[in-house]
Design a protein around this nucleic acid. Structure first.
Lengths: 253, 253
DNA sequence: GATCATAGTCGTCTTCCTGACGATAATCAG
DNA sequence: CTGATTATCGTCAGGAAGACGACTATGATC
């Protein structure tokens, strides 16, 4: 297939981020308010152009740091305090997805522990954590928030839905749920992550048996905490294992 | 983050295809020989530029049809005779991956039944099915074929490896293995697909129990065949189910 | 300080699924 | 007819998960 290498159609390439965290028992995503057309005033996923000499992953990590102060986490090294899991999600390139020009967006998925507050790269009104149901809900059924009723800009609702689905399925067969937890956490805290991401209630006893019985998933630190109330709970760190075999079973609805 | 919409760096966007099939008990991928620099004479994955007003999936389907005559299969409708499964794999955008210019490649994965022969869009010397081990093998250990010893062009070895890994894991928890089979197939033929993709031997009795006992996986057509020799085997079509629950377990190692 | 609510942790029992493997059935090649 | 080959059914033991009872160790409240 002969071609003229100089005759390719030019595209803009962006990265968009689905940044998920668990706050107050709810799965939340980072959203930014658009300050300019198109979709001015609407909420969108954070993102931006890939620079001329920048790798896709590097661009996603840069955007993540700019929006949240989080560092992308290289799975090979022990997690630094402010680390988030970052992975490529999918690429969206419908010719009409951006009315201005032809834009191909390489979406990335980031999973972060609960942060004190979104560190505003700009003003605090333009960045927020929002429960994913309210962002995906087109009718405002879940949202009393008038300015939230509008759907996300561009095709970001679809991207967010894909990211949430990826996270939901990936915590089944990997230890990725620990990415939502602080460095040290209890079995109960990890269980509340699963419950929030899946939107189900899990039996605390069976969950405890499962996670403590899976080799390499959790390593005890020796400490205990009562920050959740009740009897003191053991503290754990994420073990080296990344794949859960057999997987954690998601209850069928 | 204000920006000038006209000031984005221009990228070339391509689609590359990992087309897999099972031939003679081996997992094979479609490879094309490059006719021009860079990597002239080396084998590469089929692919090409995305057109100015073309969706990514449409571009992948077009390339697939050009190289193989296969149609991309919409899972919503019953499979036409010449259908292949097509899905997005991942996107590769290292700034140095193409020495000529900045190219972002959206790789797709296609799974096809065994075809009579690669329909040459060009001459037969430039397209072929090759066992994935020989394509991924950098040292020529598996390949006596001198012209095969060179690794794949660009980062295509990495892309192929990712595609193979996706296929290997996806047939665990989905009914996708049927995409490697003709419209009607026997349990034994399906088992040989699993064995070829995973590179393991499976117990025929347990496999038979598993696949026939999973609702929606297989529907009997009523016919039988002896094309594999031995006792006549029932013919099946792929059922509507896409997710296997519980999954097919891949033997460790 | 006793009581209670709250969370964590350990056990038991039943059910289901899998892996290992014996046995039988139906074809084809000689 | 005999043996090779593939398909299919059955049995049994071991492991994992769901359901749930019981007990433990805190802080909060009276």
């Amino acid at each position: 297939m002969p071609y003229d290498p100089a005759a390719f159609p030019p595209f803009a390439v962006t990265v968009d981020l689905v940044v998920l965290t668990v706050r107050r028992h709810a799965l939340c995503a980072l959203a930014v308010r658009r300050g300019e057309p198109p979709f001015q005033g609407r909420w969108a996923l954070p993102g931006g152009f890939v620079r001329a000499d920048e790798d896709l992953t590097a661009a996603a990590a840069r955007e993540l740091a700019e929006e949240t102060g989080l560092l992308a986490h290289d799975p090979a090294v022990p997690a630094p305090p402010n680390a988030a899991h970052l992975e490529q999600l999918a690429t969206y390139g419908d010719p009409k997805r951006d009315p201005r020009m032809r834009v191909v967006s390489v979406a990335h998925l980031a999973l972060a522990p609960d942060l004190p507050a979104p560190r505003p790269g700009g003003d605090a009104h333009s960045v927020r954590w929002a429960p994913v149901e309210s962002l995906l809900d087109q009718d405002g059924t879940f949202s009393r928030d008038a300015e939230q009723a509008a759907p996300l800009a561009f095709d970001h609702a679809r991207i967010l839905a894909d990211g949430v689905e990826r996270a939901r399925s990936k915590i089944e067969y990997s230890s990725l749920a620990t990415a939502f937890c602080p460095q040290e956490f209890t079995v109960g805290e990890l269980r509340r992550v699963y419950e929030a991401v899946w939107g189900v209630a899990l039996d605390p006893r069976n969950f405890h048996r499962k996670v403590t019985g899976t080799p390499g998933f959790l390593v005890p630190t020796g400490g205990t905490t009562t920050r959740q109330g009740g009897r003191p709970a053991q503290l754990f760190r994420a073990g080296g294992a990344t794949l859960l075999n057999p997987p954690m079973l998601r209850p069928e609805v």
